[in-house]
């Protein structure tokens, strides 16, 4: 469970002051499949970064499970991200020198998981995203859609509490988009994995079970479909 209370974020570089978030209150329960939508510059990325512990709120709290992540030190936060949060990025951001299999295995190595557990989970996840025949390919040998599916498998590998995805389909063609959404949706249905993603894409919005609309740093509407 993610609990965001009274979160504001103001960017102030001395010259320009931008109030990216102006009092966000929202709760996301385990098992949700939630889209955050809104016009460009409305604060979607900022909100996801703050929920994911990549950025800190100016005011307010973000409580994940039992932990108020606004109070963690930098190193604690990194460790928290490793063990509790999965990330999928718009531009995939796989490690270029590692194969698909190694990319998925990577976070489990950081978690000191046993080789047997790593192998089993990597195989299972790559199969779940339909890439069991691509395990030894490097990112630059795969299509964008394939890379993003590896990224989803990587995000799941560390057994996070939820997965955050900032515009995961923005760089994908429609077939890959549909394919990725199918996979995410299935993981949500079958494994009860929580997904929170931002998007501009109406086809993606249509698949969400909950749509939170942000505008000008505030929540405009919050609709369960």
């Amino acid at each position: 469970m993610i609990k965001v209370t009274h979160v504001t974020k103001t960017y102030d570089d001395g010259k320009v002051r931008v109030e990216a978030l102006r009092g966000i209150n929202v709760e996301i329960k385990n098992g949700e499949f939630t889209a955050i939508v809104g016009p460009s510059g409305s604060g979607k990325t900022t909100l996801l970064n703050i929920i994911g512990g990549l950025d800190t709120p100016t005011e307010g709290n973000v409580i994940i499970g039992e932990t108020n992540i606004a109070q963690l030190s930098e190193n604690q936060l990194i460790d928290f991200r490793l063990n509790h949060i999965g990330f999928v990025f718009q531009s995939y951001n796989l490690i270029p020198v590692l194969t698909a299999k190694e990319n998925v295995e990577f976070l489990m190595l950081l978690q000191n998981k046993s080789e047997a557990e790593r192998d089993e989970r990597t195989t299972k996840l790559l199969k779940a995203v339909g890439l069991e025949d691509q395990i030894n390919k490097k990112p630059n040998e795969m299509s964008g859609g394939q890379q993003q599916r590896v990224a989803v498998a990587r995000a799941l590998a560390s057994k996070p509490d939820f997965i955050l995805a900032d515009e995961p389909t923005a760089n994908l063609d429609s077939a890959s988009t549909a394919n990725l959404l199918d996979i995410m949706y299935r993981l949500n249905q079958e494994e009860n994995m929580t997904f929170v993603f931002s998007t501009h894409d109406q086809r993606v919005i249509d698949r969400a079970k909950r749509v939170i609309t942000v505008e000008d740093g505030k929540i405009l509407s919050d609709i369960y479909t």
Binding site: E74, I78, L82, N83, I85, F87, F89, P96, L110, R154
Partner: peptide, 15 residues
Amino acid sequence: FEYGVLIAVGMAKNK
């Protein structure tokens, strides 16, 4: 950029 990704997904800075 890559270091940023690694740290974002939870790799300790020392590593």
